[in-house]
Structures are given as C-alpha cells and as structure tokens.
C-alpha cells in the first residue's frame, strides 16, 4: 500500500481538472492505497463550497468529494489564504471576520501551506491537478 497526496488547483465546472482529480482519487482508493491528504489550493478551494447548486441532472462535484472524504476519513485541507480571498469560510472564520454565514462543507478543514509541505515530505507520491 502506498500513500498519495493530491493537490487540487481547479474549481469545479470551470475546467476539467477538479473532476480528473476526483476520478484519480477514486482510483487510488479502489486500488487499496491510502490518501495521505487532499490539498485544495488556489481556485481549487471552490470544491469545498456548500453553496454550489448545479442542475439536478449534473454531477455534484463538491458533494461527491464530501462523500468520498467522509467515507474514507480522508484529511481534506483547504488552503486558508486561498479560501478567505475567494469567500470559502468555515464557522470559525465567519466569526473571526464577522461574516454573515459560512459555506464550507463538513468534512473539509481549513489549513496552511505547512500541511502541503508535510504532504510533499511524507506521501509516497504527490500529484497536482491544475486547470
């Protein structure tokens, strides 16, 4: 069993890259390997948005990520600087910045670039998915 870290830099529905990352993540798990961490970076933070409402007959990528993360207890980190700039906030950030609501899906957590460095150092493979 090997460990993988995925860096996801694309927003859902803007390019194919976030969907490619999701399919790759499924294949890693199906092969019996471990996901050390998912790191959502730059526009990739939109994958953690609970406010995405695609048409009902279209694939709901943020909720699909959430299901995969919760089913397999994956550490899914959303870069704090990327997220705050783009309006992706959890309850703690909502309170800290006196915002009116939070939108980050449960299962994802806010974190810093140190966690990306940890993934680079400790995962067997790091694979980046950029738009």
């Amino acid at each position: 069993m090997s460990s993988f870290a995925l860096v996801i830099q694309g927003a859902p529905y803007s390019s194919q890259s976030a969907l490619t990352a999701y399919r790759y993540c499924e294949a890693v798990l199906k092969a019996g390997h471990n996901i050390h961490r998912l790191f959502f970076y730059q526009d990739g933070v939109h994958n953690a948005s609970g406010f995405c409402v695609p048409p009902q007959d279209e694939f709901h990528l943020p909720r699909a990520w959430q299901r995969l993360i919760q089913q397999h207890q994956i550490d899914a980190v959303v870069c704090v600087a990327s997220a705050l700039k783009r309006g992706i906030v959890d309850q703690a950030e909502t309170q800290r910045h006196l915002l009116t609501g939070s939108n980050m899906l449960p299962g994802f957590s806010i974190g810093g670039l140190g966690l990306l460095m940890d993934a680079l150092a400790n995962a067997d493979r790091v694979v980046t998915f950029a738009p």
Partner: peptide
C-alpha cells in the same frame, strides 16, 4: 484511471 495510478 487505475492505470494512471499504477504509472504514478
């Protein structure tokens, strides 16, 4: 995709 993982 599983081949992509194996190639990695």
């Amino acid at each position: 995709y599983s081949g992509f993982v194996a190639l990695s």
